[in-house]
């Protein structure tokens, strides 16, 4: 996974609340067995509208997306994070995210930044001027050319994973002994829990 420390660039001022994963990537795009190329299906219904914000040349090359409350609600499809990543998005800023989407984002080297609605409204204004926004994960700040400066928090484990580009599966496999100990005590005390399909 590519480490993420600082992202600077134009931002797409989407602004909508409850942007669900069916809007981000409709079901027909989920038939792939690869993680690649989903950007072409991203926001398909929205992009069918003339003058939509996603395809507006003013935001060409944007690597930040700004949205409203509850971004990424709905399905658990990681395709939503893959599609945004394929569009070149590295940071999504919103007042809140769905739990599953924010986890999926981090696992794909994408930073979900939670800021209060007032701060998001201000960033939307700046983004609409086509100006670059700067997001610094080490400092945990979002800044604008107008000297706006907003700080955000992210749980330390997710922050470390993003900064280091860490592979969570590898990290956990290194804890195999602890997992084995847990399983052994489980098997002794509640063997039925460990049978699963072998019951």
């Amino acid at each position: 996974m590519e480490p993420l420390t600082r992202v600077e660039g134009r931002a797409i001022p989407l602004g909508l609340k409850n942007v669900d994963t069916d809007i981000i990537i409709p079901a027909k795009w989920l038939k792939t067995i690869s993680r690649e190329g989903l950007g072409q299906g991203a926001f398909e219904a929205l992009r069918a509208e003339p003058g939509n914000v996603i395809d507006d040349p003013a935001y060409a090359g944007a690597n930040i997306l700004i949205a409203g409350d509850n971004f990424g609600c709905g399905s658990s499809r990681e395709h939503a994070a893959w599609a945004l990543g394929d569009m070149g998005i590295r940071v999504v800023i919103a007042p809140s995210f769905s739990d599953i989407f924010s986890g999926n984002a981090v696992k794909n080297g994408m930073l979900p930044v939670v800021l209060p609605q007032g701060a998001v409204d201000r960033l939307l204004e700046v983004a609409r001027e086509g100006l670059a926004i700067s997001v610094d994960l080490e400092q945990q700040t979002v800044t604008t050319p107008y000297q706006d400066r907003f700080t955000f928090t992210l749980d330390p484990f997710r922050r470390d994973c993003l900064l280091g580009g860490l592979d969570e599966v590898g990290l956990t496999m290194a804890r195999g002994e602890a997992i084995g100990g847990f399983e052994a005590s489980r098997t002794a005390a509640q063997p039925w829990l460990m049978r699963g399909t072998a019951a």
């Binding site: 399905s75 658990s76 499809r77 990681e78 994070a81 599953i100 986890g103 999926n104 696992k107 794909n108 969570e168 599966v169 956990t172 496999m173 804890r175 195999g176 997992i179 399983e183």
Partner: peptide, 15 residues
């Protein structure tokens, strides 16, 4: 519900 990276994580580590 979990994402696909977590599906991989569960398959590999059961955690």
């Amino acid at each position: 519900g979990i994402g696909t990276s977590e599906v991989e994580h569960v398959l590999a580590t059961q955690t």
